[in-house]
Design a protein around this nucleic acid. Structure first.
Length: 638
RNA sequence: GCCGGAAUAGCUCAGCUGGUAGAGCAACUGACUUGUAAUCAGUAGGUCACGGGUUCGAAUCCUGUUUCCGGCACCA
């Protein structure tokens, strides 16, 4: 007999060699039905794997992430099996389960294209119907090498496995090198869909060959699959490129240049509102704004070290007779120059310089994507020059500003990363003592403020540790929205100093503070977040004023617009000779937060009848009352 | 940059296996004078991304280039 321990710590005795499936059945038939795999001593495996010794057992049941992973992993094998039948020459790379499904990397002589997916999917369904058992076996490394002699990628993977025991999974005619666990039979794979083909470098290395990656997704029920496909559709609807075009937020034109977006009036209005908001916030936090030009000498970037390290990511030099110029890829060198332009005393610090700057980076063509990745990016960048004893206060203050801005934008901090250096100190700028001290201070302040963070060992910039603030977008992507980075190197390169209390020269620390990623990327995130329906404080047009009859009510509508203008609100009068229904519809499609209808009643009684975006109800209120409501709504940034 | 796909009117898209381009919306003109998600009629609009080729004939087939899309790599 052996003793099996369950997740709730209860123990039971079973015959030696009992399978998880049998255990599940013994507990409840329903449980067996729901189980797709098992974790024995924490290791994922199959339901029919005999348990030979005392062990802990957790049944992996449908509805859990682990079950989804098992199913998708098995579906990846099914995909590979189908491809092998259709393309006998296929060689296989890796085929894991991922967050929303699975993929398999495959090399075939004949290219696999989108239109081949349906045929591959059909073959998968056929194999699934054949109801093949999925069998685990353990072989020696030697045996495995000979079994996969035709598969160079598997060979390479095998070479790297230290263990001499290799597990293989087979389903009549197809065997894969795999750790497992899997579902019991191919017929349990039912509700799946192949989604796309893409290229992917073998082992993620751009120096190596490119395989064809097929993406797919697999679910336990047809409803779940449909739900997931609907979610993908919904994401397409939220795509900032689509919304940005519809709402005339920005323009990307190959005539104007690849990756060089033009902010259209609607988008620029939103951006200006945000810029003014951010600058006011920065002023409150003690920042001074400045504005250098977009060109700087090559020498400036030689001094900063950017030229040497990032030349390939910069636009080509602009050559003059005696000097070459760099299209500004970074803000910090200019800020260092400003720091150096005066003699600084310890009393002057911290000095906080901020600017709204358009930076130019020569991003690889394949990396460009809508507003998410561009070659001309505008950001609100700041650099704080501080004494070492001020690091804690300044990092905390920067974090406070970031938190406030992210909240006001209607976004949420998903998590915070603290990037530290690791044992491999060689790749980091030296000066151990300062590093250790800085890392300690950053940990302390995060702990004191009860800010949860994950330590990322070895992820620090070579010039100092940093805090990255991660935000989850409406489409589920995690992006680094803000960052606070300590820099011990740049002050040295520019030989920045201040006169201390002791009358001697000291080295300040530079803190880089990024706030909103870039305005371009932020716009893409906000478009997706709000699905194009900006809250009133941001909306390009905050209210559409719609006269019932152009002839009779236009004058009054124009008068109201004048009053809104005086109060600094953004409205537009729809003076087209169109039916009221049409004008309402158009205003709704433009996602304008308020529609104000002006007819005989409104003119006579100085009222407005308003309707909100996305709602059907209408409310008639006095004009002054509406102005109050409007002002309140804008102040609340809802 | 790499792999695969796509590019047709201002926008969204039709156009089968080669026979010389079409719809809806938008625009313009006119009529209607409007009370909460599309009033009606008419007009105009295209070197079918760009260059080369095959063919009696190319939006359609081949080829090069550009841009975009799905990914990979990259992202100070």
């Amino acid at each position: 007999m052996i003793t099996i321990t369950f997740p709730d710590n209860s123990k039971r005795e079973y015959e030696k060699g009992v399978t998880p499936k049998a255990v599940a059945k013994a507990i409840a038939p329903g449980l067996a039905k729901k189980s797709v795999a098992a974790k024995i001593d924490g290791v994922l495996t199959e339901l029919d794997r005999p348990i030979e010794t005392d062990a802990s057992l957790e049944l992996v049941v449908k509805g859990t992430d682990a079950a989804f992973e098992v199913l998708n992993h098995s579906t990846a094998h099914l995909l590979a099996h189908a491809v092998k039948r259709l393309y006998p020459d296929a060689r296989f790379g890796v085929g894991p389960a991922i967050d929303e499904g699975f993929y398999y990397d495959i090399k075939t002589d004949e290219a696999i294209r989108d239109e081949d997916l349906s045929r591959i999917e059909e073959m998968m369904r056929k194999i699934a119907k054949e109801d093949l058992p999925i069998k685990r076996e353990v072989v020696t490394k030697e045996e495995a090498v000979s079994r996969f002699s035709a598969d160079p990628y598997k060979q390479e993977l095998l070479q790297e496995i230290e263990d001499d025991e290799i597990t293989l999974y087979s389903q009549n005619g197809f065997t894969d090198l795999c750790r497992g666990g899997h579902v019991e039979r191919t017929s349990l794979i039912r509700h799946f869909k192949l989604l796309s083909v893409a290229g992917a470098y073998w082992r993620g290395d751009s120096e190596r060959e490119m395989l064809t990656r097929i993406y797919g997704t697999s679910w336990f029920t047809e409803e779940k699959l449909d739900e997931y496909l609907a979610l993908r559709e919904e994401r397409r609807e939220r795509d900032h490129r689509k919304l940005g075009k519809e709402l005339k937020i920005f323009l990307l034109s190959d005539e104007a240049g690849q990756g060089l977006p033009i902010w259209l009036p609607n988008g620029f209005t939103v951006r200006r509102v945000l810029e003014e908001y951010v600058q006011r916030l920065e002023r409150r936090y003690g920042y001074k704004h400045l504005s250098p030009p977009i060109l700087g000498t090559r020498q400036l970037y030689e001094t900063s070290g950017h030229f040497k390290h990032y030349k390939d990511d910069m636009f080509p030099l602009i050559e003059d007779e005696d000097e070459s110029y760099v299209l500004r890829p970074m803000a910090c060198p200019h800020h260092a120059i400003v720091y150096k332009s005066e003699l600084r005393s310890y009393r002057d610090l911290p000095l906080r310089y901020a600017e709204i700057v358009t930076q130019y980076r020569y991003e690889k063509s394949g990396a460009l994507s809508g507003l998410e990745r561009v070659r001309a990016m505008t950001l609100t960048d700041a650099h704080i020059f501080a004494r070492k004893d001020q690091i804690k206060h300044e990092v905390l203050s920067a974090y406070g500003l970031i938190r406030k801005a992210i909240n006001d934008l209607g976004l949420t901090i998903e998590y915070v990363e603290l990037a530290l250096r690791d044992a491999d100190k060689g790749k980091f700028h030296e000066s151990d003592e300062l590093w250790d001290e800085a890392e300690k201070v950053m940990k302390e302040l995060l702990d004191e403020e009860r800010i949860e963070y994950t330590e990322m060992k070895g992820e620090a910039a070579f010039y100092g540790p940093k805090i990255d603030i991660q935000v989850r977008t409406a489409l589920g992507h995690i992006i680094t929205m803000s960052t606070v980075q300590l820099d011990f190197l740049l002050p040295e390169r520019f030989d920045l100093t201040y006169i201390g209390e002791d009358g001697k020269r000291h080295r300040p620390v530079l803190i880089h503070r990024g706030l909103i990623s870039t305005w371009e990327r932020l716009m893409s995130i906000l478009l997706e977040q709000f699905k194009g329906a900006f809250p009133t404080w941001l909306a390009p047009t905050q209210a559409a004023i719609i006269p019932v009859s152009v002839e009779k009510h236009l004058d009054h509508a124009n008068k109201l617009q004048g009053l809104f203008l005086d109060a600094d609100y953004r409205t537009e009068v729809d003076d087209r000779e169109e039916k009221l229904g049409k004008k309402i519809r158009d205003a709704q499609q433009k996602k304008i937060p308020f529609q104000l209808v002006i007819g005989d009643n409104e003119v006579e009684e100085n009222t407005v009848t308003y309707r909100r975006y996305g709602e059907k109800e209408q409310h008639t209120v006095g004009f002054d009352e509406f102005m109050e409501l409007f002002a309140k709504e804008i102040a609340q940034k809802k």
